[in-house]
Design a protein around this nucleic acid. Structure first.
Lengths: 338, 338
DNA sequence: TTGTAGGCGTTATCAA
DNA sequence: TTGATAACGCCTACAA
């Protein structure tokens, strides 16, 4: 690999001049700068990252950490898109992304991740709602620039979807369609986004003067099609049966629809279903799922931008960024049949 | 951050002794080694990656590159799992994973990726069948250890599923069920895995004495539920209509089933459908999808292991690793009705 | 078995 | 505006 000395020799200047020229130091004459840059280009010179990092203490690398509970979460299209979009934005900003998955149970919440201890990263993105608070606190204390996405913690920058409003507008829409008995298929309520969706659901009911009835909220442990089917079965045991179901996410909603169809219930004629997320599949489903869109790509790029901003300007107070949500009306909802 | 000098001071030895002790140099007395390691542990010492890389020329980091065509591919559960499992294995082996997505069109096939030029990585995984040959060649010429996954190129280590056999056993199974008119819902045939699946399909037909009829192969541009629905519609225009369809992957198969159900065709009673991949959704679908399992996790970990092996032993001839496939019989297939 | 000194490639400091 | 020199943290001859 060609280094700064090689260029210096060719240009008959000192290595330091080369370094300055390449870094656009204003004290270098336009002429030498041009000459040096030209030579560097010809020689396909690329600065050695390790050497540079050693002295600047900047790696130009951002860590992206996610927790692995069940396999489905890892392959979760939600985080895949956030990951994709964060890396895309980071690339634009001149950063690389170091990707790490921590197997659940193997996490020591008192120990910062290796990538941090080895000084491989300039900042860290923590994705997902199930990061232990203690772990976040451990990392925060190291002083490394940090942003959470789809999670919230005091004293730490957080990027979240507007889950409350999302669930709220979805529920409100169902109410406007004439539905009175609206169920909520929930997931783990210790996940902040799930909890907020539940809140939004209850808020809309309350505002419409419909009393919240816990019988119509079922809490599943995971957010999959499978648990959606299960949730439907539980909810369907109620008397009277719900005429509409808001699901905590899309996969569950799809499971609900499938299970309903299985026992001969027509969606949306006999049962309206709304999801939250707007995953790719949802629009392709039959019926196409009415859902609340989460702007996943935007969440990813905003997270990345915020982190870089915090690296460049460390003395900012922590902020919470709420990305709006949007109701996408498709075919799984209909006015209440009299 | 605490460094080797701090430890040296505390232990009243020279920095080199510390370095040797921590790297288990046999020339260090057991006693000093123990003492030094103890101090290092107490001080939470972690070697600075940049400094070490500068001298050893090893970054202990592997690049994982994927091409972005359409959004769905990026979030593709297939590559998500390979990525997850590769990172998992690399972690075990003491490596980090640098994740890069190249936006299609922004790729310069004559230029090695930045992570390579900046010497940020010790080896590179190239995932996906749509990496341009020229790009692979460019990278290969740099001499960096390289492994392809779900792709093949001469002179480069490649890890692939046994697609031919997978499609073959699936087709054979349909034949055994009595089906005579078996269609193939294909995707882009320049993707090696799709092409091989097509081959396996034809091979099984041929062996059974069923003449391959191009009318019963439809080629879609993408491998999604949506194109699956489209493929079904095309295939259904044939006369006679197929009684079974092998799909190039699972999402397409799900689309096929949905579309068939939409027009009142019962699966599997009137139409058998087999997918390939075994994505999570497939088992949760109604009917649960009969499919060919691709061992995605194994492919990821094998890819990682092979790459590290090649780094440690560079002078090996290139190899092609074929990971077997397995027919998973579920509910979307049935014997031909007379 | 341990210490000294040099060097990896780059940037930063100080002098010219 | 440029050059010489030191420094970042670690590893590794060579010397002791």
């Amino acid at each position: 690999m060609v280094n700064i000395k090689d260029i210096a020799k060719k240009a008959r200047v000192s290595p330091s001049t080369v370094s300055r020229a390449l870094n656009d130091d204003p004290k270098i004459s336009e002429e030498t700068r041009k000459k040096i840059k030209e030579i560097a280009r010809k020689l396909k010179y690329k600065p050695n990252q390790a050497a540079r990092a050693l002295i600047t203490r900047e790696t130009k690398t951002i860590g992206f950490l996610i927790l692995k509970k069940e396999k489905p979460l890892v392959a979760d299209p939600f985080y895949s898109i956030i990951l994709y979009s964060a890396q895309n934005e980071l690339h634009e900003l001149g950063y690389h992304l170091l990707y790490g998955i921590i197997p659940h149970g193997k996490l020591n919440p008192q120990k910062p991740p290796r990538m941090l201890q080895e000084e491989r990263i300039d900042g860290l993105i923590l994705a997902g709602p199930d990061m232990p608070k203690e772990f976040i606190e451990t990392i925060r204390k190291t002083g490394v620039p940090l942003v959470l996405v789809d999670n919230y913690s005091e004293n730490v920058d957080s990027v979240l979807a507007d889950n409350i409003r999302g669930a709220y507008i979805a529920t409100k829409y169902l109410i406007e369609l004439g539905h009175k008995i609206i169920a909520f298929a929930s997931g783990p309520l210790d996940h902040i986004s799930v909890y907020e969706r539940w809140e939004g659901y209850k808020k809309a009911l309350e505002e419409a003067g419909i009393k919240y009835n816990p019988e119509y909220t079922v809490k599943e442990k995971e957010l999959t099609m499978k648990t959606g089917r299960h949730a439907f079965q539980i909810l369907w045991e109620n008397d009277p049966k719900p005429t509409a179901i808001l699901s905590a996410n899309d996969p569950m909603a799809l499971g609900i629809i499938q299970c309903a169809k299985d026992i001969g219930i027509k969606v949306p004629e006999e049962l309206s279903v709304i999801g939250i997320d707007d995953i790719d599949l949802s629009s392709q489903f039959d019926p196409p799922l009415t859902t609340v869109r989460i702007f996943k790509e935007e969440m990813g790029s905003i997270t990345a931008k915020r982190l870089i901003d915090r690296i460049k300007n460390p003395n900012q107070p922590p902020i919470k960024i709420i990305v709006s949500t949007e109701l996408i009306i498709r075919g799984s909802t209909a006015p209440l049949r009299k």
